[in-house]
Design a protein around this nucleic acid. Structure first.
Lengths: 163, 163
DNA sequence: TATTGTTATACTCTATAACTATA
DNA sequence: TATAGTTATAGAGTATAACAATA
């Protein structure tokens, strides 16, 4: 019953003028399409996640800390578009796993600095390798050009999420 | 609270200095990037959703029924990459709202046929217009070329989700 | 016996509101 | 009084396991 999507058309030079048959470039139509696509892939990614793996939120936080260095929970929440209490939970979970460490802010007694531990870095590396296996495999089956489109869109999706 | 001060930024600088737009077309790296982007946008979309609106799942189901016609819950679950019990819940919620109708399968007594009602079609149209306002506005702020990339990627994301 | 769908139950993730401690 | 973080609590969304009805 599932519809087979049309084969990817060549996009090299014709990006601006030739919209794919399914997805329109009109903002309103694209919006509806994109929402469903993102929602569906999100669900699929979650179900493909290994049992022992970090949650999406935990993984994202660890990535951010690894990338940008120690940060306060508030800054993390802001960065991940999460509410502070949700971030507290995520950080505490990571702390209990020994993957991050909480320490006092040098000058502001209210703040907390969260930093990734060595175990966290190792876990991040391992998790990245293991749990993205499914998606990595599927991406490998695409053409390099399709992957280029996705790489570019990944950045655009972030910009959209940045509100 | 733990006392040791974190080493300020020994991990921060070394990780990624290349501009994200060429971030990487390597499947493994792209996989990690894409997962975080999709996850973050999904969260943002959910939080931007209007109070009275349909949930993502409800919206998607209504869209599918509108697009492909009546379908069994099993087929819907398959299409949306959901488990049957989850789909039962979604369909029942829509049924209680009067947006879909359940009827017997003509030949197979086990199956149920779910079809969208007129109220469902109207609600779909209205919801689409109202709740995608935020995303539509943000998409409108992009260049036509960026939108073309996203339109193309939307299709690719679906193919990825289709497992 | 296999398949379709449902019920019962539980878990994960996130949010809001109220509270504590510091500035 | 304002800000950073936490605790308590609730809600949405999805999953697994067990069950009923039909093929």
């Amino acid at each position: 019953m599932r519809s087979s999507l049309p084969p990817a058309a060549d996009v090299a030079g014709a990006v601006e003028t030739a919209p794919p048959s399914v997805s329109s470039c009109r903002p309103a139509t694209l919006s509806a399409e994109l929402r469903i696509s993102v929602s569906r892939l999100h669900r699929q990614l979650r179900s493909q996640r290994g049992e022992a793996d970090l949650s999406d939120g935990q993984y994202a936080v660890l990535s951010v800390l690894d990338k940008f260095g120690p940060m306060s929970p508030g800054a993390l929440a802001d960065h991940e578009r999460m509410r502070p209490p949700s971030m507290t939970r995520t950080v505490n979970a990571l702390d209990e796993l020994g993957l991050v460490r909480k320490s006092e802010h040098p000058t502001d007694g209210r703040q907390v600095l969260v930093s990734v531990t060595e175990a966290g870095v190792a876990e991040l590396r391992e998790t990245r390798r293991r749990r993205d296996a499914w998606l990595t495999r599927r991406l490998g089956a695409l053409t390099a050009e399709d992957r280029a489109v996705l790489a570019r869109s990944s950045e655009l999706l972030r910009r959209l999420a940045a509100g």
